[in-house]
Structures are given as C-alpha cells and as structure tokens.
Computed example of a mutant assay.
Amino acid sequence: MTLKPTAGNASELVWIKSSYSDSSNGHDCVEVAPTPDTIRIRDSKTPHGPQLRVRPTTWADFLAYATADAR
C-alpha cells in the first residue's frame, strides 16, 4: 500500500489516501491527515463535512487490526 497526497495549499492539512482506494470513481475513499497529536479521517466525497479525530496510537492499533487478515 502506498499513500498519495491530495491537492491543497501549504497552510492546510495534507490529506492522503491509500493506493487501494483507486476505483472507477477516484473520490470514493477515506482520506487521512496526520498531525503530531491526531490523525484526522474524512470521507473524500464530502471534504468539508465531519472529520473523525483519533490519537496516533489508536490509528496504529486500528491499522494493525484492519490489516491482520491481509497478511
């Protein structure tokens, strides 16, 4: 899996999406924006909509759980 930055200016968060998110509609994905204190998560179809914020350790735990069957 690789992460691809999405467009935006330097003063904004840098949103990234997984290369696994490629589909017939490139906007059907979840995007994340890491900061030192939080990982922000949003639906790419509604970039100005609600965001979920979790601690980096919580995100790491989620990724370990989500990828456990993929190994």
Results as ranks from 00 to 15, higher is better:
residue 1 M to G: 10
residue 2 T to H: 06
residue 3 L to E: 06
residue 5 P to H: 07
residue 5 P to R: 09
residue 5 P to G: 07
residue 5 P to N: 11
residue 5 P to I: 08
residue 7 A to K: 15
residue 10 A to R: 14
residue 11 S to E: 15
residue 12 E to T: 11
residue 13 L to S: 05
residue 15 W to K: 02
residue 16 I to K: 01
residue 16 I to D: 01
residue 16 I to C: 03
residue 17 K to N: 10
residue 18 S to R: 03
residue 19 S to C: 09
residue 20 Y to V: 00
residue 21 S to I: 01
residue 22 D to M: 12
residue 26 G to I: 07
residue 26 G to E: 12
residue 27 H to E: 13
residue 28 D to W: 12
residue 28 D to N: 14
residue 30 V to F: 03
residue 31 E to F: 02
residue 33 A to L: 08
residue 34 P to I: 07
residue 36 P to G: 06
residue 36 P to T: 07
residue 36 P to V: 07
residue 38 T to S: 09
residue 39 I to D: 00
residue 40 R to T: 02
residue 41 I to R: 02
residue 43 D to P: 00
residue 45 K to V: 01
residue 45 K to R: 13
residue 47 P to R: 00
residue 49 G to V: 07
residue 51 Q to W: 02
residue 52 L to M: 10
residue 52 L to P: 01
residue 53 R to L: 06
residue 54 V to N: 01
residue 56 P to C: 11
residue 58 T to A: 10
residue 59 W to I: 14
residue 59 W to C: 06
residue 61 D to A: 15
residue 61 D to K: 07
residue 61 D to P: 00
residue 62 F to K: 09
residue 63 L to I: 06
residue 63 L to P: 01
residue 63 L to W: 03
residue 63 L to C: 12
residue 64 A to T: 09
residue 68 A to Q: 09
residue 69 D to C: 00
